[in-house]
């Protein structure tokens, strides 16, 4: 029964989350981007198709999620829609999960999924060789997007200010990617293997790609992004359940 109530609230919130035209513009943008990227260089294996297409799409999707989380979520609070949600007989934990589903998970599934479908159609002779490998790469990118999304949603819930949330989100995103880049650079220049490994592990798609291509990779690299994501996600749910006020 509680699940049914939560689902109805999710449908209400999805209406706002996926409303045109900004979502449609993004959809066409990322789909076209992936179509173009898929024919730009000759990728000959399904994981390589994933990397060639989804890397750029992840960047665009992350920026979109950051901006929408900071503006829309804060708007929900400021316009009184979030207080309305909280007056329904639905637990705070479920509402936090609904908000995550509608504001992060579903938009990222669509914005990463549609480009993957386009790339799959464009390069069907390549992707068709091993669809499951292509799917595994896609899931790796999706989990990476969840990591960024949970930073954004946490920032907007905590700050409840569009400006602050946007700054924290964008800083968080670029800070994370810049750290990974610097570690990779230092690791490569000074030949410090552990730094290279850490940098590699900060993008889940790197170790996943390596493993799918038979390149030897430390197993722990696969767990770094999921663990950071789970920690951030749990923090968000606990914050929303126990401390979030409107």
């Amino acid at each position: 029964m509680s699940l049914k109530k939560s689902w109805e609230l999710a449908l209400i919130d999805l209406w706002d989350s996926l409303r045109p035209p900004s979502f449609d513009i993004m959809l066409i943008l990322v789909a076209t981007l992936s179509g173009i990227l898929s024919v730009l260089e000759p990728v000959t294996t399904p994981p390589a198709v994933g990397n060639a297409v989804l890397g750029a799409v992840l960047f665009v999707t992350s920026l979109y999620l950051a901006l929408r989380a900071s503006s829309d979520l804060v708007n929900l609070v400021q316009t009184g829609v979030m207080p309305l949600y909280l007056t329904y007989p639905i637990s705070r934990r479920n509402i936090s999960l609904i908000i995550y589903l509608t504001r992060v998970l579903l938009p990222s599934i669509i914005l990463l999924g549609i480009p993957a479908i386009v790339a799959g159609i464009m390069l069907y002779p390549v992707v068709g060789k091993n669809i499951s490998e292509f799917l595994i790469m896609w899931i790796a990118y999706l989990i990476q997007a969840q990591l960024y999304g949970s930073i954004f949603i946490l920032a907007s819930n905590k700050s409840k200010s569009t400006g602050t949330a946007a700054v924290v989100s964008i800083t968080g995103y670029f800070g994370y990617t810049a750290t990974s880049l610097i570690l990779a650079l230092v690791g490569s220049i000074d030949n410090i293997k552990i730094l290279t490994n850490i940098a590699n592990s900060m993008g889940l798609y790197n170790p996943v790609y390596d493993i799918l291509n038979g390149i030897r990779t430390p197993t722990w690299e696969i767990f770094v992004v999921p663990v950071i994501f789970i920690v951030l996600f749990i923090t968000y749910v606990i914050y929303f359940t126990r401390r979030f006020e409107v």
């Binding site: 109530k5 209400i12 919130d13 209406w15 706002d16 207080p83 329904y88 007989p89």
Partner: peptide, 27 residues
């Protein structure tokens, strides 16, 4: 409990009937 806030605040772009239909299912 039914709640009415100072600034009426329902989702802006959704038709009222559609919104109320979802809310009725919640209750």
């Amino acid at each position: 409990i039914g709640v009415i806030f100072e600034r009426p605040s329902l989702p802006v772009s959704m038709p009222i009937i559609e919104f109320l239909s979802h809310v009725s299912k919640i209750y």
